[in-house]
Design a protein around this nucleic acid. Structure first.
Lengths: 334, 334
DNA sequence: CTGTTAGCGCATTCAT
DNA sequence: ATGAATGCGCTAACAG
């Protein structure tokens, strides 16, 4: 590997001078030219590790997500990458795979690499463990989770309000027997989303009927299986609220294959508003989860935490909102 | 930040000893215990940048892709990550965004960080430019592209054969007027895939009819627009081959909304075999692109290039294969 | 088994 | 404006 020393030799200057021209510090035009041509000649590229060591600071922003193949996280990563780019940083990704040990591992790897900032999505670790990391890493921010005492370093969405809104929409459309398809992952999101559904039923005086809530894996296949279960239990449900859009897509495919027309005979509402929602037939009504905006905000927040030149973004409360498309309609008597 | 020196002091040993126990070199049990407890106490975490500098080697495997929100690349990244994990490495991601300047930038950033290996997907750079990088980076491997003279460091798929197979399937089902929906990105893949379609028509003695090939953005919306164009031009097409599954999904939604039944009245075949293919109604027939296997292979290859302890994986030729689901059927006379 | 020490490649302070 | 020297945190060679 060719180093700054090689460049200095070829340019006939000291390493200090090379460093200066590379970092746009003051130097003579002659020196600049000599160095630049040497760099060109040799194909020199500064060693980022050495720079990090000397500067006690990296240009790296770490992100930990659960699974990059989930569009939700892909959008999160992309948003962080775009902010990083804007500030001349690069991103380092850690993948947690729904597993505490791996989440921990991912965070620690990023910490060992001395990422200046961290945007972490963690569902498997305890509050206390995350607090330890937050204390250790000044530039760390938590996304999609709110930890008491660290609200200013967390950016999250009110899940419960999301499913409340979804359920309320169905109720206002005249539905009275509304099911809920949830996730079988043991994470808070599920508890909160289900609660929003229940609260809406309660608030509108609707009874909670046995076996109208089912759980499965939070993906297409899980949605299919859950919808089949629901249809097996009940012949008179007219609508369903789902944990996320993928499950809604699975549910929709089961309904379609059973010749149950959505939305004429059955209404369906998703959660997240991922691209797939507007690609289904009919286009899926859903709750928008502004993960792109939230990730953008979280990244800027993280950046501001370690660099006082970057102003702290104004704290924004992100809200779930109803996106009404064509999978929801007035209740028809089945 | 707390360093190895702090640990040494607290444990009452030298930094060398600390380094030894951390790296499982020989040392006394007493030393091991003392160091381990000091590490625990202090919450010490080794500086990966310093390690990289001292070792002249990183545990980092770089990946450059076009866009993480594209499932194809998400799967690629995930596969690389899994191999990396297996070998105790971590991954660094660069995103090229369909742009030469950004692809270059991504590769160079990864190089500056001294990634030991690189798996790069590049469509915007020239062969020559990639060759320069290949020469510079011993552990670099190209995926989804084949560069003459560097075949042993490239892993790619025969695109042309893929669409040939797709078109052939439709022909064998009796279709005679078959359209092609292509990508409007100026990359080789499109040229090759379209060529496969044309070759099949020719080989089976079918005429190439005007305006049966249209191009649009290689995503759902592009597929919709392209299908609308095709329907506007022709009332007697009975089948279409698409550039990828997303476009097929868009095309399918247009057909469905126009009450053209797939596959009874119209056959459709995609390319890539992404998860979405089996989530459509009807499930999409497509050409499997084993990007997961290819990425796994590419990662191992890259690893073997820089570490003779890792054996070079046996060179495998990856082939596109037909996955017949329910969007293709015998031709019916429209 | 263990401590001392010399780099790894770079930025930076202090002289000049 | 420039060079010599120091240190960033760690590993490994060497000596003990």
């Amino acid at each position: 590997m060719i180093t700054i020393r090689d460049v200095a030799k070829q340019a006939g200057v000291s390493v200090a001078t090379v460093s200066r021209v590379l970092n746009n510090a003051s130097c003579s035009e002659t020196a600049r030219l000599a160095v630049e041509s040497a760099v060109q000649n040799l194909g020199y590229s500064p060693n980022a590790n050495a720079q990090a060591l000397a500067l006690q600071n990296t240009d790296t922003l770490g992100v930990v997500v659960t699974d990059v193949t989930d569009p939700f996280f892909a959008i999160l990563v992309k948003s962080v990458d775009q902010v990083a780019h804007e500030y001349g940083k690069t991103i380092l990704i850690g993948i947690g795979y729904h597993n505490a040990e791996k989440e921990r591992n991912a965070i620690e790897t990023l910490l060992r690499k001395r990422c200046s900032c961290l945007v972490v999505h963690s569902k498997a670790l305890t509050d206390q463990e995350l607090i330890n990391y937050l204390e250790q890493a000044k530039g760390m921010v938590i996304i999609n989770r709110c930890i008491a005492g660290y609200e200013h370093r967390c950016v999250s969405l009110d899940n419960q309000r999301g499913t409340f809104l979804a359920t309320e929409l169905l109720i206002k459309l005249g539905h009275r027997k509304i099911g809920y398809i949830g996730s079988n992952h043991q994470i808070n999101d599920e508890v909160e989303r289900k609660q929003g559904y229940l609260t809406a039923l309660q608030q509108y005086g609707l009874p909670v009927i046995e076996n109208t809530s089912v759980q499965n894996s939070p993906d297409f296949e899980g949605g299919e299986a859950a919808m089949i279960d629901l249809l097996s239990y009940h012949s008179d449900l007219t609508a369903v609220v789902t944990y996320n859009d993928s499950m809604a897509a699975g549910a929709l495919s089961v309904l379609t294959e059973n010749n149950i027309n959505v939305p004429r005979q059955f209404s369906l509402i998703g959660f997240d508003d991922m691209p797939i929602a507007s690609h289904l037939v009919p286009k899926l009504s859903t709750i928008r989860y502004p993960i792109d905006l939230m990730a953008t905000y979280a990244s800027k927040l993280a950046l501001s935490l370690i660099n006082e030149n970057i102003e702290t973004p104004i704290h924004t409360q992100f809200n779930p909102t109803v996106v009404r498309r064509f999978s929801t309609d007035s209740c028809y008597q089945r």
